[in-house]
């Protein structure tokens, strides 16, 4: 798909993510907007998926390891047509809602893995990738992790296993927006040299601007040509990307826009009249 079209979809997803948080009065909009361009490129350009057959065994898999950013995935699944009817009100985080606070595979159509307890997505993805090779299928497994999330030890267990099993069908995006719940990643743990660290485990690493769809496409093309190694695309992203009042302000890690801020979101993301 043309980059311009994808950018438009990305902004639609951003708006929908903000709308569901605003309506539901709870959620993590900053982390969701950070990865909107990656998610859009995957769902609308790259992944081999069929919304009418979400359990299709040859499909590419997707795991949102940083599960708190799920509003952007719910929006993507909705736009892509995964639900019988297009969802108007997500009832995010409400009792009996299909749209849980963090992704749940058995509650939401199109979610390949439950996630949200940080650190687990890469190893789960490695399991799916091993199964793909075992079954001689050529699907790929995509995982999106946060940079703060990399502090979890189990992340490196997954990175280790993926390397030893030579999982070139596993492609991990690291959303390196530099922020985590408690503050900046650098302040919390002293360093954020992601590519160097993952590269040391024998992965193929690519560094890009994660809010630039052309760069995301290029990185995916490179990833698809790698043989014998898992791939990490370290994507420098802006937390809250797309809304001027949200960008790089970690107060939006979790937060609910006011009615006025939501109106601003309409202007900035949808082109509503001022």
């Amino acid at each position: 798909m043309e980059t311009k079209q994808l950018q438009k979809i990305a902004d639609t997803l951003r708006y929908e993510a903000v709308r569901m948080v605003w309506e539901g009065k709870d959620g993590h909009p900053g982390p969701a907007l950070s990865i909107a361009d990656i998610v859009t490129t995957l769902y609308f350009d790259e992944m081999n998926i069929d919304p009418d057959n979400p359990g299709w065994e040859d499909r590419d898999r997707f795991i949102l390891s940083k599960g708190h950013a799920c509003p952007i995935i719910y929006a993507a699944l909705n736009e892509k047509g995964y639900f019988t009817e297009k969802i108007e009100h997500f009832n995010l985080r409400a009792l009996h809602s299909d749209f849980q606070g963090h992704p749940v595979s058995q509650k939401t159509v199109g979610i390949d893995s439950t996630s949200g307890s940080l650190g687990n997505g890469i190893a789960i993805g490695a399991g799916m990738a091993i199964a793909g090779k075992f079954h001689k299928k050529d699907y790929r497994v995509f995982v999106v992790v946060g940079d703060g999330e990399l502090q979890e030890g189990v992340v490196w267990e997954g990175i280790n296993v993926a390397s030893s099993h030579k999982l070139d069908n596993l492609i991990v995006f690291v959303d390196r927006n530099g922020w985590q719940s408690g503050g900046s990643v650098e302040d919390v743990i002293g360093g954020n040299n992601v590519a160097q660290r993952i590269g040391a485990f024998g992965w193929h690493t690519i560094e890009i601007d994660g809010n630039d769809i052309d760069q995301i496409k290029k990185a995916l093309a490179e990833a698809n040509s790698v043989k014998g190694k898992p791939i990490a695309i370290v994507a420098d992203c802006i937390k809250g990307k797309g809304l001027d009042f949200m960008e790089n302000d970690n107060a939006w890690h979790k937060g609910v826009p006011t009615d006025e801020q939501f109106r601003q979101a309409g202007i900035q993301l949808k082109g509503d009249a001022k």
Binding site: E57, N120, A123, G127
Partner: peptide
Amino acid sequence: PANYIECGIAEQGTVNVAAGLSTCGIIP
């Protein structure tokens, strides 16, 4: 040999790998 999946001394990762395998029809 193809049915033996070594994950190293890493039980959390091992269980997660099993979760991923299971979603693809394997009985780990």
